[in-house]
C-alpha cells in the first residue's frame, strides 16, 4: 500500500500509464462517436435523438463511478494516512462533477424532444442533480481550509458520509418519483438495449473511463508539484528566519 504513497514512484507509474490511457481514450471516444453518431441505426421510437445516449449514459456511469472511487480513496487516506490517496480524491472531484453536469445537460437536451420540456423531475436526473450538489460541497470544503492536511481529512470524512448517504438518497428519490409520476420514462441502460447500439455505447464507456484516468493523472501530477512547491517555500521561510536569528 505505502509503496505507491511515495510521490516519486507514483510519478514514474503515472508517466508509464499516461500514453496508454490517452491513446485508449482518443481511440475509443473517436471510434465510439463516429459509430454512434453516424452508423448506429436510429431508434424506431426516438429517431436520431437516441444518439444523445452515447454521451448521456457513460457520463452518468462515470459520475457515479468517480464518486465511488473518491470514497474508496478517501477511506484509504483516512485509515492509512496515504497522501496520494488524498490527492486522487481531490483531483477526482472536479472531473466527477463535470461528468455529472454533462449528464444533466444531455439529459435536458434529450428531454426537449422526448417530453417537450427542458427539464423533467425524473428520478435519475434528480438523483444526478443532488449528486452534483454533493460534489460541489466536497470541492468547497477542500477550498475552505488553508491547512491542506486538515482539508484532506475533512473532505475525506464528507466523502464517506456522502457515500453512505447516496444510496439512501437514490432510493428515496425513486420512491418519491413513483409517488408523483407514474414511471413512463424510457430507460436507456438495461439489458433490453439492442446490440447495434450496445457496441458503440461500450466503446464510449471505455473511452470515458480512459479519459478520466488520463485527466486524473494530469491533475494528481499537478497537485504533487504544488505540494512540493509549498514545501520549498516553507523551507525558504524557515531558513530566512534561522539566518535572522543567527545574526
Amino acid at each position: 500500500m505505502h509503496r505507491f504513497a511515495n510521490p516519486t514512484r507514483f510519478l514514474r507509474l503515472a508517466a508509464a500509464v499516461l500514453p496508454f490511457s490517452a491513446a485508449v481514450a482518443a481511440l475509443c471516444l473517436g471510434a465510439g462517436l463516429v459509430w454512434g453518431l453516424f452508423f448506429a441505426p436510429p431508434d424506431y421510437q426516438q429517431g436520431d435523438t437516441v444518439r444523445i445516449m452515447f454521451i448521456h449514459v457513460p457520463a452518468a456511469m462515470m459520475a457515479m463511478g468517480v464518486y465511488a472511487g473518491m470514497a474508496i480513496s478517501s477511506a484509504i487516506a483516512l485509515i492509512w494516512r496515504h497522501a496520494i490517496a488524498d490527492l486522487i480524491a481531490k483531483a477526482s472531484a472536479p472531473i466527477g462533477a463535470t461528468f455529472c453536469f454533462i449528464c444533466l445537460l444531455t439529459g435536458s437536451l434529450w428531454g426537449k424532444p422526448m417530453w417537450g420540456t427542458w427539464w423533467v423531475w425524473d428520478a435519475r436526473l434528480t438523483s444526478m442533480l443532488i449528486m452534483l450538489f454533493i460534489y460541489l460541497g466536497y470541492m468547497a470544503l477542500w477550498q475552505a481550509f488553508d491547512d491542506q492536511t486538515k482539508a484532506a481529512r475533512a473532505a475525506a470524512i464528507l466523502a464517506l458520509v456522502g457515500a453512505i448517504n447516496l444510496p439512501v438518497i437514490k432510493f428515496s428519490v425513486e420512491w418519491w418519483n413513483t409517488l408523483h409520476q407514474p414511471a413512463s420514462l424510457i430507460t436507456m441502460d438495461g439489458p433490453k438495449i439492442h446490440s447495434s447500439l450496445l457496441w458503440p455505447l461500450l466503446l464510449m464507456i471505455v473511452g470515458f473511463g480512459a479519459y478520466y484516468l488520463t485527466v486524473l493523472i494530469f491533475r494528481v501530477r499537478a497537485e504533487v508539484h504544488q505540494r512540493r512547491t509549498r514545501m520549498l517555500r516553507m523551507a525558504q521561510a524557515d531558513r530566512h528566519a534561522a539566518m535572522q536569528a543567527a545574526e
Binding site: 505505502h2 504513497a5 511515495n6 510521490p7 516519486t8 514512484r9 494516512r81 497522501a83 496520494i84 492536511t149 504533487v224 505540494r227 512540493r228 514545501m231 520549498l232 523551507a235 524557515d238 531558513r239 528566519a241 534561522a242
Partner: peptide, 25 residues
Amino acid sequence: PPDPFDDDDAFEDEPDASDGLEAGA
C-alpha cells in the same frame, strides 16, 4: 525550532527520502 539547514538539498536530490508527503507513515 528544528534546524532548517539540516536536510538542505533533500528536495532536489533525493525526493524519495523526504518530500514530507508520507504524513504519519
